[in-house]
Design a protein around this nucleic acid. Structure first.
Length: 553
RNA sequence: UACCCGGUGGUGUAAUUGGCAACACAACUGGUUUUGGUCCAGUCAUUCGAGGUUCGAGUCCUCGCCGGGUAGCCA
């Protein structure tokens, strides 16, 4: 049980009814959701589901300068895609009126004051990490004067940034957040929901806990860096004097190898053209993962296994990949496709014959049925499956070697034709053994190697994009001294090619997923496919224990 | 060194709350297999250090050491 489950379980066992149990996922609508957000979503929505409580989706839209409606829309789409349903759809901006009234209450109580210091001066008065701050000269204003000035701030009498409303706490506090934090700043920017109704906006600290309280949130979960804000979160709630208050608990955000997670860096990737947009299949955004063909089930299973704690950690990319493969293995139909084709001619196979071979669609799913693939005298095979000088334990093609063409016959190499200039293999000529159909082993010989192929006369030549991790180092979010994270973008992370596919693949529709046998999992990219031609993107390669073995030796 | 949080295998999480350190991933062996995929089996830690309390400590106490966070009118 995670530490969060323990907290909730304790509260429930002490009388908190599941009906009242409530969480919230509170994104700021200033960007696209990424896999780090997915962790937060899975944690809060997951806990709600597990204990029979509720979870809201609340937009923390208190800084109109950075927020946009399109992000509100994309975030909702992404949360739904991940597989969660929120109880209430909320906006911090819906609470602006209530927040204002509560601010007036704090002023009346002597717990807040209008400060005329500008940003620079506030910073100077705040002190440093190891030195206490100094009181603002405006700290001792009368309640009446504060009320009047605050009303003036509201009605637009003062210029942007000229005054703030600050909580009156303790400028000597060891917690910097408690040194009279700003509650309101004057900022004339158009809000995507409230328009120009307001020229002052509440800060995160002033809005967040109050929003939680208004919604009846019981458990407000956030990331570790907000731990220092907890005393302030509690202070505001206590000063307002609410009966039932939410409690904040912090947990570590997700860090994943070979990608960046900060909004600033993701924006740089998009704006400087390093990727093809927020939904580039190499991006860790949910939009990118979706286009890549990753399933929401795989993401949820991933989140479940990595768990949640208060320790900053880095998750191996392979963990995510394994979950992606695991789900795809069960759900995708198999097809054959050759990514780097070389011609094979089966000399003793009749020239005008097309023999239909029966292939299993998905060995993991008997209900997926069978399909037919035409077998002919000439087929395409993968260049990787032939070696002129095979290493030890090589099970594929080589001069004089015999392999099985998957779901077809065993063939034995008779002759290898190479380009006289480059030495590159251009054609492999074989004989087949007619007695080896339907998996029958040839007399007295054991053929271990099995390779994939496609018929040459009717192969569908389809565009494929091979994606691999965008970065070449494990932690691009923390690049080595003196270097930029963009220095580590792998130029080979996207490779455009053409695959020679079994004919049926030409009919694949956007959103379809397949396993290309012995190669990997592929998604028909809805963004780049048309009625006439599907465009495949590689979701993940298959595990390749042979490649690993060969590399190690 | 102002305050806050944390430290369990290569990695990430567990441990009936003081009772045989478990699971997954990675790595390495081997087996099954018409995908070198999947699947199956095996190997891989005396819990940051030193003391203390206790029949018994990953868990409680003390002192260290190490890592992370915090000085936006961002969230």
């Amino acid at each position: 049980m995670s530490f969060l489950e323990k907290i909730v379980q304790k509260d429930v066992s002490e009388g908190l009814s599941p009906e009242r149990l409530r969480f919230r996922f509170p994104p700021e609508p200033n960007g696209y959701l990424h896999i780090g957000h997915a962790k937060a979503i899975c944690v809060s929505f997951g806990l709600a589901g597990e204990f029979g409580g509720h979870c809201n989706l609340r937009f923390d839209d208190t800084n109109p300068a950075k927020e946009e409606q399109r992000f509100v829309d994309s975030i909702q789409e992404d949360v739904k895609w991940l597989g969660f349903e929120w109880d209430q759809l909320c906006f911090a901006s819906d609470y602006f009126g209530q927040l204002y009234d509560w601010a007036v209450q704090l002023i009346r109580q002597g717990d807040a004051y209008v400060c005329d210091l500008d940003g620079e001066e506030v910073r100077k008065h705040r002190g440093t990490l190891s030195e206490p701050g100094v009181d603002s000269p405006f700290r001792t204003r009368s309640v009446e004067e504060n009320l009047e000035l605050f009303a003036g701030m509201r009605s637009g009498e003062f210029s942007d940034g000229s005054r703030t409303l600050r909580a009156k706490i303790d400028m000597q506090s060891a917690h910097i957040v408690m040194r009279d934090p700003v509650m309101y700043r004057i900022q004339r920017s158009h809000h995507h929901r409230t328009g120009d109704d307001w020229c002052l906006y509440p800060t995160y600290d002033w809005a967040h806990g109050q929003g939680d309280a208004i919604e009846g949130v019981t458990h407000s979960l956030c990331s570790l860096e907000f731990r220092n804000h907890r005393p302030l979160y509690d202070w505001f709630l206590q000063k307002i004097g609410l009966e039932e208050v939410p409690s904040q608990t912090e947990f570590a955000r997700l860090n994943l190898q070979f990608t960046v997670m900060s909004k600033r860096r993701l924006r740089t990737l998009v704006e400087d053209g390093h990727v093809d947009g927020w939904d580039d299949p190499r991006m860790p955004t949910l939009a990118g993962l979706r286009r890549r063909g990753v399933t929401p089930e795989a993401i949820r299973a991933f989140m479940k296994t990595i768990g949640v704690s208060k320790v900053n950690s880095m998750i191996d990319l392979t963990v995510l990949e394994n979950h992606i493969r695991d789900h795809l293995n069960k759900m995708t139909q198999r097809r054959m496709a050759v990514l780097d084709p070389v011609k094979m001619v089966i000399e003793n196979f009749p020239e005008d014959l097309q023999e239909m071979m029966e292939a299993v669609n998905n060995p993991e799913d008997p209900d997926a049925g069978m399909r037919q693939i035409p077998f002919e005298r000439e087929v395409w095979i993968d260049r990787d499956d032939f070696r002129m000088d095979p290493p030890r334990k090589w099970r594929r093609l080589a001069p004089d070697a015999e392999v099985r063409l998957r779901y077809g016959y065993c063939v034995k190499v008779k002759e290898v034709i190479t380009d006289p200039d480059s030495g590159e293999v251009t054609e492999i000529r074989c004989d087949y053994d007619p007695e080896t159909s339907k998996g029958r082993q040839p007399e007295g010989r054991k053929v271990r190697g099995i390779i994939h192929w496609v018929p040459a006369s009717c192969a569908a030549k389809l565009p494929v994009t091979l994606y691999s991790p965008l970065f070449s180092i494990e932690n691009p979010d923390d690049p080595p001294e003196g270097q930029e994270f963009t220095d580590f973008i792998d130029p080979g992370s996207r490779v455009e090619t053409t695959a020679f596919c079994e004919p049926a693949l030409a009919q694949a529709a956007g959103g379809d997923r397949f396993q290309f046998e012995r190669v990997g999992y592929f998604h028909v990219d809805p963004a780049r496919s048309s009625e006439e031609s599907p465009h495949f993107v590689r979701i993940a390669a298959l595990r390749d224990s042979w490649a690993k073995k060969e590399k190690n030796s």
